[in-house]
Simulated scan of single mutants.
Amino acid sequence: MPIKPIDKKMSFGSPKVYTFCLNCGEVISIRVKNPEMFRS
């Protein structure tokens, strides 16, 4: 599910990008693909 700005009800949001270890499956990082959409 995308992350959506609180003040923009009709926004589609931005997808999350997960980086994880292929050996153990541990998630190394989670980031927002389009952080510019959250700037006012």
Rank of each mutant, 00 (worst) to 15 (best):
M1P: 03
M1A: 08
M1E: 07
M1C: 00
M1L: 06
M1Y: 00
M1H: 03
P2T: 12
P2F: 07
P2Q: 07
P2K: 13
P2H: 12
I3D: 04
I3S: 06
I3F: 11
I3T: 06
K4G: 01
P5A: 01
I6F: 11
I6E: 09
D7H: 14
D7A: 14
D7I: 08
D7Q: 13
K8S: 03
K8L: 05
K8H: 04
K9Q: 07
K9H: 04
K9P: 00
M10Y: 11
S11G: 02
S11E: 09
F12M: 01
F12R: 00
G13V: 04
G13W: 07
G13I: 02
G13K: 11
G13A: 07
S14A: 14
S14N: 06
P15A: 05
P15K: 12
K16G: 03
K16W: 00
K16A: 10
Y18D: 03
Y18I: 09
Y18V: 08
T19Y: 08
T19R: 14
T19V: 10
F20R: 11
F20C: 03
F20H: 11
F20G: 05
C21W: 02
L22W: 00
N23T: 07
N23F: 05
N23H: 09
C24L: 10
C24R: 13
G25T: 05
G25W: 11
G25A: 09
G25I: 08
E26L: 07
E26H: 10
E26C: 00
V27Y: 00
V27M: 10
V27P: 01
I28T: 03
I28A: 03
I28K: 15
S29F: 03
S29E: 06
S29R: 07
I30R: 14
I30D: 02
R31L: 05
R31E: 15
R31M: 09
R31D: 11
V32W: 03
V32K: 11
K33W: 02
K33Q: 14
N34R: 11
N34E: 10
P35T: 06
P35K: 11
P35F: 09
E36T: 08
M37T: 02
M37K: 08
F38C: 09
F38L: 09
R39I: 12
R39L: 13
R39P: 00
R39D: 10
S40E: 13
S40G: 07
S40W: 07
